[in-house]
Amino acid sequence: MKNQILWDCHMHSSFSADSETPMEDMIQAAISRNLSGICFTEHFDPDYPADPDGLTFDLDIPAYHARLHHLKEKYSQDLQIHFGIEIGLQPHLAQQFRQLLEDHPFDFVIGSSHVVHGQDPYYPEFYKGRKVTRCYMEYFESILENLSVFDQMDVYGHLDYIVRYGPGQNASYSYGRFQDILDEILKQLIRSQVGLELNTGGYHYGLGEPNPCSQVIRRYRELGGEIVTIGADAHDPSKVAYGFEKAADLLADCGFTYYTVFCGRKPQFLKL
């Protein structure tokens, strides 16, 4: 029997600033792909810098929760639906996020680095006049800065997110090139009992790898890491469960026999 992943635990709908897709459309896509369950992880990035596209990553959490609850009941015979969030980490937001997680009954919390010292590396301005490798190093350093003050998320999202958008994408990037700092990050995650997300968005961004890359996932396992969630980072129905066959084989090749789904902030380990 081939390896398979039946839960997509990272997706967005029109409750996120960068998606226009109704939540119900994402649910129907998941059902059509024969998934067992999904977790919506809408964006919440307080203090997001002024955006050239005019986006603000606020989130109406009560409205989001109410809509999800309604659809969870409507589709209860077809699909399990969990209530998650993707928080955009910055060190000065640590206390705000602690309070947020006390105030709302999330099933799953992804902590992600979208902003590095006041800039989002999605935009070319972050790289202007600088070596790409230095930009990547600053991104990884900012992850350690975040972990030093906040570690209450369930997993760290798309750990090498920056290589999706840097000049040349991952031409200037490999685990070996940044091994020391990536190992330090992985060890800190394991010490803090924060898991790692395997984000298949890297495949649909043309990297030929997930985020983080396969060598980082393998190293996480070698260091004793056990918690790996899987998400396609879909913002529209066409990307739901994207690349999951590759992800399942990759996890098995890295030594995993299971993947992780969170319910009520508790990890559940499902066989590949």
Rank of each mutant, 00 (worst) to 15 (best):
Q179P: 03
G129D: 11
C39N: 04
H12G: 10
Q28W: 05
H117N: 12
F40W: 06
Y64G: 06
P105Y: 07
Y203F: 15
T56S: 13
E24K: 04
R67F: 01
I227F: 05
C213E: 12
D160R: 09
M153H: 12
I5H: 01
Y258F: 14
I227M: 09
D60Q: 07
W7Q: 06
P212S: 08
M26E: 09
C9Q: 13
P121N: 06
A232M: 03
E86W: 05
D78R: 15
D249G: 12
Q95W: 10
I185A: 08
G111T: 02
Y220P: 05
S192Q: 15
P49T: 00
P91H: 06
D160A: 08
D180F: 05
V116R: 10
G195V: 09
K187L: 15
N3Q: 01
A29L: 08
Q99V: 01
C9V: 02
I230N: 04
N211H: 12
I31F: 03
Q99Y: 11
A63R: 13
L68P: 03
E226A: 11
V115D: 08
R164D: 04
R191P: 00
R67L: 11
N3M: 05
T200Q: 02
Q215E: 14
A94F: 11
Q119G: 04
Q80S: 15
I162A: 14
E73A: 13
H117F: 09
E226D: 12
L79I: 12
S148H: 05
I38V: 13
L89I: 03
P237R: 00
L196K: 07
P124G: 04
D233C: 06
